[in-house]
Simulated assay, not measured.
Amino acid sequence: MAAVISIFVLVFFYLIGVLHFSPAEWSEFGDFMAGAAGVILTALTFLALLYTVHIQTTELGLSRNELRLTRGEMMQNREELARSAQALDQQVNAIKVQNFERTLFDSLRFLNEVVDQFEYQSPVEDRPRKGAQAFFSMYHLIAHPNFGLGALGAEDGDQIGAHQPLNQALDRLRPLLATYFRTLYNIYRFLNESPYAERVYYNRIIRSQIPDHAMAILFYNSLTERGIKFQKYIVKYNILDNIPHELLLNPHHAEIMENLPTEAAEQVEIGEG
């Protein structure tokens, strides 16, 4: 293209009489062309510079758009990852809750199986009682007037736990009650150590599995040295809130129940700490 343009320029200048073949005129023409070429090259260089700036501006705009799109995709990916992480956490928590409930309900099932194996006949009965009805017979063994628990008032709270006839009666019942109380204690310990906030809901389920007469036996057993550790769970989870007060061997024993844990139980807690 440069050669073709040069030929056309030479022909044009020759036709208008500017270009001649004498050496002097060639010298003048050369000076003219040098000056004209400098101007033209400068203009072309400036235009090329403008075109380069235009190209760079366009590429910069495209790069910005691409970065904006990339940033948008990264934001979407980040949100998607956050949603995936949240869904995964919910799934993990759901699995943990399922495992907790499975363990809890398996423990309650075992507790009921222990109760189903109960068979006890109190001295004043003519036939043994089985299952949950056996708690009725076991309670009446403790409530027998010969043991004298009814004569101990609220001020004798510490003496009730150390009362020898009560401990003798519980020793007679221990082959039946030891597994029951141990399982019930571990159920509440498992509930207490769980990280779930629905303890109130699960506590209601557990409490519904404890018959009234079993609550009365649990209360008096918790005053003894062997059952004193249960007092912290009795208080924390209000296990005895629904116990009928007529099952208390003395109406004043309600004051002892309301003031749990006893000083002896608090000393046990301090010693464990």
Rank of each mutant, 00 (worst) to 15 (best):
E125I: 05
F135I: 05
A178M: 05
G153A: 10
L184K: 07
Q159A: 15
H140Y: 15
G153L: 03
H144V: 03
S137L: 12
N146K: 15
H140R: 14
D171E: 12
A134I: 04
F118Y: 15
A169C: 07
Q117F: 10
V115Y: 11
F136Y: 15
G157D: 06
P123C: 06
I187T: 12
T179S: 10
V114S: 02
A154K: 06
K130G: 00
D116E: 14
L141G: 04
I187H: 10
Y120E: 01
V124G: 04
G131L: 12
A151R: 12
H144P: 01
A162T: 13
R127E: 15
R129L: 14
G148H: 02
P165R: 07
G131C: 08
Q159H: 12
G153M: 06
R127G: 00
D171Q: 15
V115A: 11
L173P: 00
V115H: 11
N146G: 13
Q164W: 09
A178K: 14
R129K: 15
D171W: 04
V115F: 14
A154Q: 02
E125T: 02
G150T: 08
G150A: 07
Q168K: 14
L177F: 06
M138K: 11
A162R: 14
D171I: 01
S122Y: 09
I160H: 07
P128F: 15
P165Q: 03
L141Q: 06
K130V: 08
H144W: 05
P175I: 07
A162Q: 15
N146R: 13
D156G: 00
L170M: 12
A143T: 05
V114P: 01
Q159T: 08
P165K: 02
E155D: 11
V124H: 15
Q121L: 05
D171R: 14
E155Q: 14
I187S: 07
Y180T: 04
Q168S: 13
L170T: 05
H144Q: 06
S122T: 06
T183F: 03
D158W: 03
A134V: 03
G153F: 04
A151F: 11
A169W: 06
F135A: 02
H144I: 01
F136E: 12
P165T: 06
E155P: 00
P128T: 07
D158Q: 11
H163D: 07
L184D: 01
D156L: 09
V115I: 15
D126T: 14
M138E: 04
F135R: 10
D126R: 13
A162L: 11
A178E: 04
E155S: 13
A132Y: 07
T183C: 13
E119V: 04
Q164N: 10
L184M: 13
N146D: 14
R129Q: 10
I160N: 04
P165N: 03
F136T: 08
V114F: 11
V124L: 11
Q159E: 14
D116G: 00
D126F: 13
Q117D: 08
L176Q: 09
F181Y: 12
D158S: 11
Y120S: 02
K130P: 00
Y185A: 12
L152S: 03
D156T: 04
D156N: 10
N186C: 10
P175H: 10
Q164K: 14
R172C: 00
G153T: 06
G131Y: 08
P145I: 07
A169T: 04
H140M: 12
